[in-house]
Simulated assay, not measured.
Amino acid sequence: MQKIIDTHIHVWDLQKAAYPWLQNDTSILNKTWQIEQLTPEIDTVGITSGVLVQASSNMEDTELMLDTARNTNWISGVVAWLPLMDTAKTQQLLEEKFLQEKYFKGIRHQVHDEPNTKWLLQPAVLDSLKLLAEKDIPFDVVAVLPAHIETALEVAHKIPALKMVFDHLSQPPIKTKEKFGIWGELMRTAAQHKNFYAKISGLGTTSGSHDSWSAEDVKPYIAFALEHFGTQRCFCGGDWPVSQLAGSYSKLWNIYTTVVNSLVDQQESEQIFYNNAQQFYHL
Rank of each mutant, 00 (worst) to 15 (best):
E154I: 13
K199Y: 07
T206Y: 10
G204I: 09
Q171S: 13
K158W: 03
M164C: 11
G202R: 06
A147K: 14
A225F: 01
F229D: 01
M164P: 04
T151W: 11
H228Y: 14
I159W: 10
Q232S: 14
H193M: 12
E150Q: 15
R233T: 11
L169K: 00
P146S: 08
K177E: 15
H157G: 01
A156N: 07
L162T: 06
V165K: 06
R233E: 10
F229L: 03
Y197D: 03
F180D: 05
I222T: 08
Y197A: 05
Q192R: 14
C236P: 02
T189S: 12
S201G: 05
G204W: 05
G230Q: 10
I182A: 15
H193D: 14
F166K: 02
W213L: 05
F235W: 12
Y197T: 07
G184E: 02
K179H: 14
R188H: 14
S170H: 01
F166I: 11
S212L: 09
H210F: 15
C234R: 09
D217K: 06
A223T: 00
G230Y: 09
T176C: 05
V218G: 02
Y221G: 04
C236F: 15
D217I: 06
L226C: 07
T189L: 15
F224S: 03
P173L: 04
I200L: 11
Q171H: 15
R233G: 10
F196N: 01
M164T: 06
S201N: 07
L145A: 14
P220D: 09
N195S: 07
S212A: 13
G230S: 11
Y221W: 03
R188P: 00
A198Y: 02
K179N: 14
G204Q: 06
V144K: 13
H168W: 05
M164Y: 11
S201Y: 04
P173W: 09
I174L: 02
T151Y: 09
S201H: 04
E216W: 07
S207R: 02
F229N: 01
P160V: 12
R233Q: 10
I149C: 06
A215D: 06
H228V: 07
I182K: 15
D217P: 06
K158M: 12
K163Q: 14
G204E: 05
M187K: 01
Y221S: 01
A225C: 12
W213Y: 14
K177F: 13
R188I: 00
T176F: 07
W183V: 09
E227S: 13
T231G: 00
K175M: 14
A225V: 10
M164N: 08
L226G: 02
E178Q: 14
F229I: 08
I222M: 11
A225H: 01
I182W: 09
K179Y: 09
A223M: 01
K194N: 14
I174V: 13
D217N: 10
A156L: 04
Q192I: 09
C236Y: 12
H193P: 00
G230E: 09
S214E: 07
I149P: 02
A190I: 10
A152N: 04
Q232V: 12
A191W: 10
E185G: 00
